[in-house]
């Protein structure tokens, strides 16, 4: 299943993500693809809001690599930006996913092994505040 949605602002992106989280009542893995500044962290902000957490808690995990937030469902926010494919494989993602909740992974193109059942979110920068968001679900 694939959906293409146009976002016209960061607020729009957050709303789209909140709706996706509502469609994942038992959690799941969300792989995020998109260049620097595409709005991946903003998308995670929406996922946390949709999972019943405080969207304002979300900050970039580029340095910390992994952050966890509390909601009705726990949300784990992973950022592979600084890692190579092999190192990303070393992070213990299987254990994190097995832990439950929503697991959002930024820079998911760094992953070498496919994650079965994961939702893929591709965000493309169309200029200014406009983004094309493609959501693929198995």
């Amino acid at each position: 299943m694939e959906r293409l949605i146009r976002s016209h602002s960061e607020t729009d992106t957050i709303r789209i993500a909140r709706e996706l989280a509502a469609d994942l009542p038992r959690g799941g893995t969300v792989l995020l693809f998109g260049e620097l500044g595409a709005g991946k962290t903003a998308f995670v902000r929406g996922l946390l809001a949709g999972a019943g957490g405080d969207a304002d808690e979300v900050t970039s995990p580029t340095f910390t690599l992994i952050q966890q937030y509390a909601g009705r469902l726990p949300v784990t926010h992973v950022d592979l930006y600084r890692l190579s494919a092999l190192e990303a494989d070393d992070l213990g993602l299987d254990e994190i996913v097995a832990g439950g909740g929503i697991v959002a992974i930024e820079w998911a193109d760094r992953l070498v092994r496919p994650m079965t059942g994961a939702v893929q979110v591709h965000i493309e920068d169309d200029g200014a505040d406009t983004r094309s968001i493609r959501i693929e679900r198995a």
């Binding site: 890692l83 190579s84 190192e87």
Partner: peptide, 9 residues
């Protein structure tokens, strides 16, 4: 050399 901070490394 590895391009960042690698947790395991």
């Amino acid at each position: 050399e590895w391009g960042g901070v690698v947790p395991e490394l």
